[in-house]
């Protein structure tokens, strides 16, 4: 068991393992997101107050979930990298960052277009919206910082530290709707209580959320493989792999 984890944490071991795992997540993402989009756009009932603009929830909420989850995942990876010096953790964090930035951007954009018919404004400098904007800048900062050093290790350490400090922003985003007066409504889903929506509204949302998480895992597995090959390109196993391939 221990040997298995040890092998998995090595770039070479992960490279082989992830190849077998990633197709399942790609398939799950395609099926779930495909079904969720059709269900959310065409079959879920319109909201009695918001009408059809309510359908934006099916892309807005999953994107906002991922925006925050990816940052937490990067912070955990940063911690593993800094404490145990496991390079694979840093490679995974590198692979995740652009998707996190993209998801934050989509959450902000879909929220802005949703705000026009619902709140009468596309932007408000309130706690939820501002803390999400800060999250976007944190992603950009982490990506830029990693590339700003001559030595790869310095860049990785700086990016890890910024991620671990920046993760403080995540509980601020989560509780912003409770701590401050804000236009944004409180959480749609919670573990402790039933959703306030009827089943035919929240089921497609759940499917979309699961689909987005599958997509995130698939992208991370696949992109980490590229980062591994790139960083280990001087290693014997990668050179042999490239040689075999022609």
């Amino acid at each position: 068991m221990w040997a298995f984890f040890h092998k998995l944490a090595s770039p070479k071991g992960f490279y082989a393992f992830s190849a077998r795992l990633s197709p399942w997540f790609w398939a799950a993402a395609a099926v779930l997101i495909g079904a969720g989009v059709v269900w959310g756009l065409a079959f879920a009932p319109a909201d009695y107050q918001q009408g059809n603009s309510f359908r934006i929830i099916y892309v807005h909420v999953p994107a906002a979930f991922l925006a925050q989850s990816i940052f937490v995942a990067m912070a955990l990876a940063g911690l593993v990298f800094m404490v145990w010096k496991i390079k694979l953790a840093d490679m995974a964090a590198t692979a995740m960052a652009p998707l996190g930035a993209g998801m934050t951007f989509v959450a902000l954009l879909s929220g802005a277009v949703w705000g026009v018919p619902t709140w009468g404004t596309w932007w408000q400098w309130d706690a939820r919206l501002t803390s999400m904007l800060i999250l976007f800048f944190l992603y950009i900062g982490v990506i830029a910082l990693r590339g700003a050093f001559d030595g790869r290790d310095s860049g990785s350490r700086a990016a890890s530290v910024l991620t671990m400090v920046g993760v403080i922003n995540i509980p601020i985003i989560k509780y912003s709707v409770e701590w401050w007066y804000t236009l944004h409504q409180p959480a749609t889903f919670s573990i402790t209580s039933r959703p306030a929506m009827p089943v035919e509204m929240w089921l497609p949302l759940l499917i979309m959320v699961l689909g987005f998480y599958s997509f995130f895992i698939a992208v991370t597995l696949t992109r980490t493989r590229s980062v591994i090959l790139h960083r280990e390109s001087a290693k014997r196993w990668v050179r042999e792999l490239a040689g075999e391939d022609g």
Binding site: I33, V37, L41, A46, G51, N52, S53, R55, I56, V59, H60, A63, P98, L99, G102, M103, F105, V106, L109, S110, V113, W114, V116, P117, F215, V219
Partner: peptide, 23 residues
């Protein structure tokens, strides 16, 4: 027409799909 909300629903979905495909 999305019940008059086409101008909000479609850009939100469009941007999301663009991101997924772009990635």
């Amino acid at each position: 027409a999305m019940g008059g909300h086409a101008a909000y629903v479609w850009p939100a979905y469009g941007a999301t799909l663009l991101l997924l495909i772009g990635v």
